[in-house]
């Protein structure tokens, strides 16, 4: 059976648009609300990235940090995150879910235990921010055995030689970090420049899906349409924070934002 992540890319391609990937933090601002948010965006988004909040996130900007701290403060545990995924899959079985987090959480849970739990709760892919190639070789192999995509990150600083090696060893989906930044930074390079780097990656193996993330908002997403997929994370976390601060319902507001994002890339 094809991984639902690949199915989602195929579907987007037939509609002549990039796949829309969203990132929200599990447990933000509560377990129930984060599940409700996933449900409310699942119609518009093609792939859902679910953040595993960590309290020393070295690659996240302030928006995602705020979301992560909010979730941790409410007491979210890994076990709750698997439950959120399981509950979501009861609601929408075919929608792919990717967990994104830091390696220490997996390391403490035990790699094998973690992957078993991913499998039984319906996780389709993993992004581990601080487990780069080649350190992730063994873990990526374990993921493959479970038919879970291990998604490699690529950056503007990744050398050509390294790019080729990573892509050669990669699973069907990779993630290109648009610029030198933590998540949610202001887009400091032009979409043209980003797409130039993106195309450099695509050329190495056109069959592998490459999504672009970091710094993408409703203002910039339209200009990057030619990519296989686009990830919006911080902008959504920011919307949750804004909604909470103005006593509005984040579930409704995030739903609206994601619909808007989808319309921009149709």
């Amino acid at each position: 059976m094809l991984n639902p992540i690949s199915v989602a890319f195929k579907k987007a391609r037939t509609e002549n648009r990039p796949a829309l990937l969203t990132y929200t933090v599990a447990g933000d601002s509560s377990k129930k609300q984060s599940l409700d948010i996933l449900k409310s965006i699942s119609k518009s988004a093609d792939i859902l990235e679910v953040g595993v909040p960590h309290n020393t996130p070295v690659a996240d900007g302030s928006q995602i940090q705020t979301s992560a701290y909010r979730a941790i403060k409410k007491g979210i545990k890994i076990i709750d995150i698997f439950k959120i995924v399981r509950d979501f899959k009861k609601f929408d079985k075919s929608k792919p879910i990717i967990l994104m987090g830091y390696y220490n959480m997996i390391f403490q849970y035990g790699e094998n235990n973690f992957l078993n739990k991913c499998k039984t709760s319906g996780v389709n892919g993993l992004i581990v921010v601080d487990l780069p190639w080649p350190e992730n070789k063994d873990f990526a192999k374990k993921c493959k055995k479970k038919s879970i995509y291990f998604i490699q990150l690529l950056s503007p600083t990744t050398t050509s030689k390294r790019l080729r090696k990573i892509i050669q060893n990669s699973h069907p989906m990779n993630y290109f970090i648009s610029m030198l930044s933590t998540t949610g930074g202001k887009l400091k390079v032009s979409p043209r420049e980003i797409l130039k780097n993106y195309n450099r990656i695509k050329k190495i193996n056109p069959k592998k899906e490459v999504v672009i993330g970091f710094g993408i908002t409703d203002k910039t997403i339209g200009k990057l349409k030619s990519a296989d997929g686009l990830v919006v994370g911080s902008a959504i976390c920011k919307e949750i924070t804004r909604s909470l601060n103005s006593r509005q319902n984040p579930v409704i507001n995030v739903g609206k934002l994601v619909r808007k994002l989808k319309n921009k890339i149709k």
Binding site: V58, D130, L131, P132, E135, T157, T159
Partner: peptide
């Protein structure tokens, strides 16, 4: 070891 984001590898 080097548990770092890809951007810092280079």
């Amino acid at each position: 070891g080097n548990f770092v984001p890809e951007t810092l590898k280079k």
